[in-house]
Amino acid sequence: MWKWLHPYANPEVSYHFAGKLIPWFKYLTILLLSIGLVWVLLFVPADYQQGNSFRIFYIHVPTAILSLSIYSTMAVIAFCGLVWQLKLADASVAAIAPVGAVFTAIALITGAAWGRPTWGVWWIWDARLTSELILLFLYLGVIALHSSFSDKSQGGKAASILTLVGVINIPIIKYSVEWWNTLHQGQTVTKLGAPSMASEMYWPFLVCFFGFVCFLGWIISLRFRTEVLSRNAMRPWVKSVAELSEKK
């Protein structure tokens, strides 16, 4: 049943597959994020309590949700890589971590900029914010481990183990708003089936969310190709690929 997956364990096949995905993700990103940007900045009504600072929601919430999804994805890949010794798994983890770090940073910064007018403080050491900050450090740790070994497979293994240890942080972030008292509000959009939002505010959220998802697909595919190339530099197919791109 899963046999169709087998060819993708070959780095050359995966490399070309990722290359085919890039233009789709790229143009969808440009389309969705530009629609979302105009919609959110010009047409979405201001919140009756928070006023226009509510517009930050459309960046803050998608990036925060995705920072968790990216980490979970990375952890599943790291686990498979450790168990089945897949070399491509290391390349994927190395490709995903920097993107996750950027999304976490965006979630933290926009959260601070939203917190100042809404709560009156830029930062507070409560459960949600602190655990999200730890997530950023986990991403940075994974990036650092990947680049601090001269043997790439050694570094990949260390980074994968750190990724798996850090998984404990994910449920803590997700449920922190329920387990502890905090300034941070509870979940609004991830309540399945019944988001507690007006639909004129919910639709632009979906557009932005999928815009960010496509952005992830685009950049992760691009970085994955780079990682595969650098890990297979001695193979003949890589040489011909590098030559071709030089001629362009």
Partner: peptide
């Protein structure tokens, strides 16, 4: 101006 929240909104969108 974004009401009174211009600074925070543009800070967020700019940095993002």
């Amino acid at each position: 101006a974004m009401g009174t929240h211009g600074f925070y909104v543009w800070l967020s969108f700019g940095i993002t």
